[in-house]
């Protein structure tokens, strides 16, 4: 459990960092919080020849609201979200979700964007980004591009980010006042990666659901909104029966993964339970 030899780079600007990434391509890995990268290197499951440590790029350490969006820089640690980073429902939502991420020492070090770059299927932040249609800002040596969550997550630990790109920022649209949300996850132990999780975001006007977002993580190789569940909710009354019906649609819609802790049938059970419970939290 000692990493294979590697070269270490500590750029202090984004330009420097992307220059290194351009030079080394797939042989380079970006080190931010290191909470996933360092263990996989210790197991030699990842053996990058070049480590580009971005912790010295101070300009990336932010979480701020501009133009109706929350902009989260690549060095914003999970713990930054313990207290709401903005006064509206989004700040509340992030502050709720962060409580389920691992343990305090990990939250002090790991980063929001690092989670998105690693793209674990069960990551709370990945599910949040998928549910809220976050945008990812990817910078390379000659420019930048913005990718929406629906296009960003590509597969198990796979994203649209190219080897020479640095994920510098995630942007999440603020949620209108009155937006309700519910988050539920099931894990074997406190702080473990969830076997399945659900983030539900609901707006109700005039007794009817006007907007529904049902994001599921942990069940499939990457998190996504479950359109079938959302469609059954919109335009109808929001009650326990609606929550149950949407959960049943979600459970049917997913194509669950299989591993030692959860086979597909069990994961489907969990989708049913997590979606219903997350939605029911929006009833209050």
């Amino acid at each position: 459990m000692k990493p294979a030899p590697f070269h270490y780079h500590a750029p202090v600007t984004v330009e420097e960092a992307v220059t290194q990434l351009a030079r080394y391509g797939g042989d380079a890995k970006v080190l931010a919080g290191g909470q996933s990268l360092v263990p996989v290197m210790a197991f030699r499951l990842a053996r990058p020849g070049q480590i580009v440590d971005i912790n010295g790029i101070e300009e990336l350490d932010y979480a701020r609201v501009t133009d109706g969006r929350l902009h989260i820089g690549a060095l914003a640690r999970h713990a930054r979200f313990h207290d709401p980073v903005e006064p509206g429902p989004l700040g509340q939502l992030l502050s709720t979700v962060v409580q389920s991420i691992a343990h305090l020492p990990i939250r002090m070090r790991g980063t929001f964007c690092g989670s998105l770059a690693h793209a674990d299927a069960s990551s709370e932040w990945c599910a949040t980004a998928a549910t809220l249609d976050a945008e990812m800002v990817l910078v390379h040596q000659t420019g930048r591009r913005v990718v929406t969550a629906a296009d960003y997550f590509k597969g198990f630990l796979m994203t649209d980010r190219a080897d020479d790109e640095l994920l510098v920022e995630a942007r999440i649209p603020l949620l209108p006042a009155g937006t309700r949300f519910g988050f539920e996850e099931f894990s074997r132990r406190a702080g473990d990666y969830a076997l399945t999780l659900c983030l539900a975001v609901i707006r109700v006007e005039g007794g009817k659901v006007t907007e529904a977002r049902v994001g599921v993580g942990g069940a499939e190789p990457f998190p996504r909104r479950i359109k079938e569940a959302e469609a059954t909710l919109v335009g109808r009354a929001f009650d326990h029966a609606a929550c149950r019906r949407a959960a049943e649609f979600a459970a049917k819609a997913v194509d669950p993964m299989n591993d030692t802790q959860a086979d597909p049938e069990y994961r489907r059970d969990l989708v049913l339970a997590m979606v219903r419970r997350a939605l029911e939290k929006c009833l209050a």
Binding site: F43, R188, R189, A190, G191, D192, Y193, T260, Q261
Partner: peptide, 14 residues
């Protein structure tokens, strides 16, 4: 179950 991500000892919460 070759790592502590797969072999699960209890934490204080359990």
């Amino acid at each position: 179950t070759a790592t502590l991500a797969d072999f699960l000892p209890p934490t204080m919460s359990e």
